[in-house]
Computed example of a mutant assay.
Amino acid sequence: MQLVAVLALEDVIAFDLATPVELFGRVRLPDGRPGYRVVVAGEESVGAGPLRITPGAGLDVLERADLIVVPGRHDPTAPTAPEVLTALRAAAERGTRIASICVGAFTLAEAGLLDGKTATTHWLGTDQLARDYPAVRVDPDVLYIDSGSILTSAGASAGLDLCLHVIEGDYGVAVAAASARIAVAPLHRTGGQAQYILRNRPTHQTANLERVLEWIEENAHRRLTLADIGAAAGMSVRTLARRFTEETGQSPIQWLTGVRIRHAQELLETTDHTVDRIADQVGFPTTSNFRTLFAQTVGVTPGAYRRTFRPVS
């Protein structure tokens, strides 16, 4: 039986903490024995939104843990207590598996455990993680990443995917499938986090492009060229391309494609329009072009996306 220590830091996200506690705690092996012993480790009492949580163990339990799980905090950029970082670094040096859920990746990055590694986190935090910790290769599109002794997951329910992945690696498909049935969750989900991202929305970081971004939002359904966008912005094509690269990390046409993809997602979620009609409505030149770019960007086909997000009538 493996010991799982779930770290409870001040301001912990209760959902992130409860996911590994419940999932690992309910694992049963074929002979009925529990697969894991789960403890919550941390200070005497921590806030978790409207809740207060009293951990059952101190940080010293991390020294004996086979797996340490670090949930996210509501403010992932808040400094972590030095003794927690020290304990995590010591565990990593011993080769203990350490996994983060959602923005718990910020805590691992603060401890230096993600340097030189590929990691993920909730899609709303991927840009921040990449800015704050440039030594980390951030992949915003996946549900989780297993780098061996260090594992990271995307937001919210992706913690389920990560925990099920760990269970499958420890005890095999049958035990993991049984755990998935108890959680009423698929053992493996189609696609990754990419299908949940809202793309190319203007933010404070794109304030200098506000006027042209609003124009693209309103005109993305038209057959636009780079020259059309430049004219709307009152810039030369060269200046336009430079501004977009500086403020969005994308070319104007890449930004336009992202807007069209987002508009298509909205139509797939809210209408019964055919894929052909949606491709035309949002501005793609052909349905095949739309299908290809949608799958490349979102990670699933338009039909699979609709089945996931369109309410059953």
Rank of each mutant, 00 (worst) to 15 (best):
L162A: 05
V175Q: 05
G230N: 06
T121V: 09
M1T: 08
H263R: 15
G25A: 05
F294V: 15
R222C: 00
L256C: 09
T77M: 08
I101N: 08
A119L: 07
G25W: 07
L268A: 03
Y133A: 00
R52Y: 09
A109K: 01
D132W: 01
V138M: 06
V69S: 03
L113R: 02
L198Q: 14
G47Q: 10
P76Q: 11
L88Y: 13
R243S: 14
E110L: 01
L67W: 07
P30L: 07
L268T: 04
V212G: 06
A177W: 12
A185V: 02
A109P: 00
E218F: 01
D146E: 14
T287D: 01
A48M: 11
G95V: 03
Y196H: 13
T297D: 03
G104R: 10
A57H: 11
D31R: 00
R310E: 07
H122K: 02
E10Y: 12
T286M: 07
I13K: 15
T77Q: 12
Q128V: 11
L129A: 00
T86A: 15
L62W: 06
R33F: 09
G58D: 04
M1N: 03
I101H: 03
T121R: 06
L213N: 07
E218Y: 01
A183P: 03
H204G: 14
D161C: 10
A57Q: 14
V173S: 12
V300M: 13
I261K: 01
A176M: 12
A135T: 13
R199T: 02
T118P: 02
V298Q: 07
S251D: 02
D60F: 08
T286G: 10
A91T: 12
L268C: 02
L85Y: 05
L62Q: 09
L267E: 14
E217T: 03
E247K: 03
D127P: 01
R211E: 11
T80S: 04
I101G: 09
A180F: 00
A180N: 03
R33C: 08
V138E: 08
R73D: 14
R181M: 14
R238C: 04
R131C: 00
T286Q: 08
L268W: 00
A65Y: 03
V212D: 11
E266H: 10
P302V: 10
I261Q: 01
A178L: 04
G116A: 14
T203V: 05
V212R: 05
L7Q: 11
S288H: 11
R277S: 12
G191K: 07
V184D: 13
H165P: 02
T54K: 10
Q128G: 03
T257C: 09
V136L: 07
V136G: 01
D75T: 15
A185Q: 02
R243F: 07
A41Y: 11
A41G: 14
V70E: 10
R201V: 15
G192T: 12
A231I: 05
I145H: 05
P50W: 10
L23R: 05
